[in-house]
């Protein structure tokens, strides 16, 4: 079994190999500490696992991932980095890493991550999963006109075409009083004060077509 460790921190690499060796008695390990070295090793032969740090001597190893994937599409990659910020995780997963672990979790979770990627599964620890969940849970803010009911939106569009309340009433077969009530409700919901502002809103949001 060949495991490639890519990290510019010598002591960290040494610590990692110590715990890995206890578990994988027959494994052979190789170490690299820069992006060019990493790429050379990848080209040299097939590996069973790549454990990859992001920041290596000032370079960002994630930039190499597309090329690595091209040469070794099946190589399981675990990113093991100090960075905890979501954009790094997303970028790493997009570029083909199967697991993302922050370094302080290595001692407790690296074996779990390795088990996962060797059986073709992804692995994210709880701290990373929480971050991504927070991100996904954000509601997309509704724009004011998206809060209108379908009927209100219909009336909104007619008003924005400078049609009067009585014209609209006639067209929709409603009483002018009902249309007028709708109009007030629409302005309220959208935080607008006049038909003039409403028209302006429709123009700036290019809302001349009925919604699909």
């Amino acid at each position: 079994m060949h495991i490639l460790l890519s990290d510019d921190h010598v002591l960290f690499r040494a610590g990692l190999i110590r715990i890995l060796k206890e578990k994988f008695l027959n494994a052979s390990f190789e170490e690299v500490s820069t992006c060019p070295e990493l790429f050379k090793k990848i080209q040299e032969k097939e590996w069973d696992l790549l454990i990859l740090d992001i920041s290596m001597r000032g370079q960002n190893s994630l930039n190499l991932l597309p090329d690595i994937k091209k040469i070794r599409p099946k190589l399981p990659i675990i990113v093991l980095s100090m960075y905890e910020e979501r954009p790094f995780v997303i970028r790493a997963l997009r570029e083909g890493a199967l697991a993302y672990l922050t370094k302080e979790r290595a001692s407790d979770e690296l074996f779990r991550a390795i088990d996962a990627v060797w059986s073709g599964r992804r692995y994210l620890p709880e701290n990373i999963a929480t971050q991504i969940a927070d991100h996904l849970a954000l509601k997309k803010p509704e724009r004011p006109h998206e809060t209108l009911s379908p009927r209100e939106y219909e009336i909104f569009l007619l008003l924005s075409q400078a049609q009067s309340v009585s014209q609209i009433a006639e067209k929709l077969g409603l009483s002018p009083k009902t249309v007028s009530t709708h109009r007030i409700r629409i302005l309220e919901k959208m935080g607008l004060r006049s038909n003039h502002e409403l028209m302006h809103y429709a123009v700036t949001h290019s809302l001349s077509q009925p919604p699909l």
Binding site: H9, L11, I19, M82, K103
Partner: peptide, 15 residues
């Protein structure tokens, strides 16, 4: 990269 990583190494040693 300095202090942060040293702390992670201590964690590995403790493990």
């Amino acid at each position: 990269d300095g202090i942060g990583q040293i702390l992670t190494i201590i964690k590995i040693d403790l493990a």
